[in-house]
Design a protein around this nucleic acid. Structure first.
Lengths: 155, 155
DNA sequence: TACATTGTTTAGAACAAGCTAAACGATAAA
DNA sequence: TTTATCGTTTAGCTTGTTCTAAACAATGTA
């Protein structure tokens, strides 16, 4: 299938959003969907989304629920229609900050916990140097967790 | 192959590092290699690394060069041996900050550039609302780029 | 020079992610 | 109740990534 010669602003914008999403290790579809909704004046249905982005409704369904779970899109009811409509939460700053904070907090906590367990399990058979380095790591984790509270302060 | 009952601190720590790396969308091997080197008292050769982590030397070679390109490990010469030896750069804070800053700067710049080109190409056929939103985006990008200069200030 | 030792590259196997199309299930309308 | 219209789930295809094993290249040594 040859690429279309003239694409709409929406489609092109969604394409870019898909690429950007991929560069952040999201999948392409969530980026395209969010990008499409970001520009709309009014909410779109799943069917709209699938058609405009040439993607299956199954795929649209899965990824719109992902976006919903992050608070990146909101379901909107439309009178006279049984369909689900969605609109974008355009506060990207707030969205991104929350996601970064939550994601990092979770991983830092998990890492800290695992290191503590490791030290406990191997207790007695740990070379002094290694123990020191693990503790340095935990100290960095602790500082990082605290610093997360200030993320976005300059935005 | 059954999992060994008693694993060394090194091996277990490398395993955790591999998992953590995966959670940050690196590959497992770079995490394991860096984790292994992080704890060592003295540099290890490629062969050492492959053996201790049960990975092929080809894989070790590729990923150690990746780590080297990030400044996460340093090659160290050892007198009396032809082998390449490596030690970890343990300044994780500096490593992570630089990587985050560089990665984000690159992506922000690219996105900004693409948006500008988009507006130019589609000029005339852009709804007012859409144009406003694209400009809001660019404004956020600009602020974010400036904020990157302050990342890590609280660490 | 011939050989041994080391790192790199390559071919392909194994695996994981993402997507489509179709089956399915639920719900509202007739 | 039957039918039509939706969203969700599933099975399987495609694609990209990661890894191993083996071939290869480079370099030092005898």
């Amino acid at each position: 299938m040859p690429a279309p010669l003239l694409v709409s602003l929406d489609a092109e914008f969604a394409r870019l959003a898909g690429e950007l999403a991929e560069s952040f290790s999201f999948n392409r579809s969530v980026g395209q969907i969010y990008g499409l909704l970001y520009l709309q004046e009014s909410p779109l249905s799943l069917e709209d989304i699938g058609q405009r982005l040439s993607m299956s409704k199954g795929n649209a369904s899965i990824n719109i629920r992902l976006l919903e779970s992050w608070g990146a899109v909101r379901p909107v009811s439309v009178v006279g229609s049984r369909k689900d409509f969605y609109e974008a939460n355009r506060d990207i700053k707030e969205l991104a900050l929350r996601r970064v904070r939550e994601g990092l907090t979770k991983r830092f906590d998990r890492a800290d916990e695992q290191l503590t367990r490791l030290l406990k399990n191997k207790n007695g058979s740990i070379p002094a140097g290694a123990a020191k380095r693990v503790h340095e790591l935990q100290s960095l984790l602790s500082k990082s967790r605290k610093a997360l509270g200030f993320v976005g302060k300059w935005l």
